[in-house]
Simulated scan of single mutants.
Amino acid sequence: MTTVEDAYTHCAQVTREQARNFYYGIRLLPPDKRSALCAVYALARIIDDIGDDTAQPAEAKLAGLAGVRTSLGDLSESTDPVYVAVADAARRYPIPLGAFDELLDGVEMDVTGREYVRFEDLVEYCRCVAGSVGRLCLGVFGSRPEPAAPTYADELGIALQQTNILRDIREDLGNGRVYLPKEELNRFGVELSVGEDGSLADPGGGLTALIRESAARARDWYARGLRLVPSLDRRSAACATAMSGIYRTLLNRIDEQPSRVFDRRLSLSGREKAVVAVRALTGAGR
């Protein structure tokens, strides 16, 4: 039988190993909140991994996601350490478990190959796969009375996902996924393709211009989402600021030189992430 303590230990290990960016923020939380957020991350990781499993056909992925929905329907029946930890965290904090259903909806969009024609279509996807995570985090953070706090958390998650999309254009294209809205690709005259050298082709500079416009828009979403920070306690604010700070730094680098994402997956060094986290803890990164 899995004990709650063992369940949280397992989730913490998953988070340390796989949350390359988020863990720098999560570690700033006090132990109880850190454990709860690791449980949230571990379940979100399970859902994402099902959707990203290239060895499985779509039918198997959809069946796997349906299985997660079933398990979420009665957490008390599961002996899986992740579900045990999530069940305990949900008893201790007002975690909106329904947000996991939204995350599942978003991953199903990936599995079924949904196309995004307008930016509004993309926002719907981002709200499912990332805004949901923002609201789950808020359930652990807690906040001072602020009716708009869930909206701010949602907007911050959407900002982070827009950054992910710009960073991963090449990788996503290789996996048969295009998140940049068709209307915008057409407006900039972009036909996404990879050249013989393995990098994204941009013969007329349209992709560079599209990335820069998208980066400016994402920056506006960060400004909206970061309105959440003043309603959080100091450690939770530091966590949220560190998470967003790492992605905002990535966004700034993409904006400065879009070609950085043409042939690689841009990332920050461990030292750079640690600096962002320290600045967040001192309040300098807000």
Rank of each mutant, 00 (worst) to 15 (best):
D105G: 08
P145D: 13
Y116T: 09
I165M: 09
T163P: 07
L160P: 01
P150S: 06
A159V: 12
P147T: 11
I158Q: 13
T112A: 11
L103D: 05
L136Y: 09
Q162H: 14
V111N: 12
M109I: 03
T112N: 10
P145H: 13
E146T: 15
A159P: 08
A148I: 07
A148W: 04
I158P: 02
I165D: 06
A149P: 04
E108L: 11
Y116L: 04
E102S: 13
L103A: 02
E120I: 00
G131H: 03
D105A: 15
T112W: 04
S143Q: 14
C128T: 03
E102H: 13
F100N: 03
V123W: 08
Y116G: 06
S143W: 10
E146N: 14
V129W: 03
P150Y: 10
R135W: 01
E155H: 11
E120N: 06
F100D: 05
I158G: 01
L156I: 05
E155N: 10
A159E: 10
P147C: 02
L103Y: 03
D105I: 03
P145G: 03
V111Q: 09
V133P: 10
S143L: 01
Y125N: 06
I158Y: 01
R114M: 14
A153V: 11
D105R: 13
G134C: 04
V133C: 05
C128D: 13
R118Q: 07
R144M: 06
Q162R: 14
A148H: 14
C137L: 11
T151R: 15
E115I: 12
E115F: 04
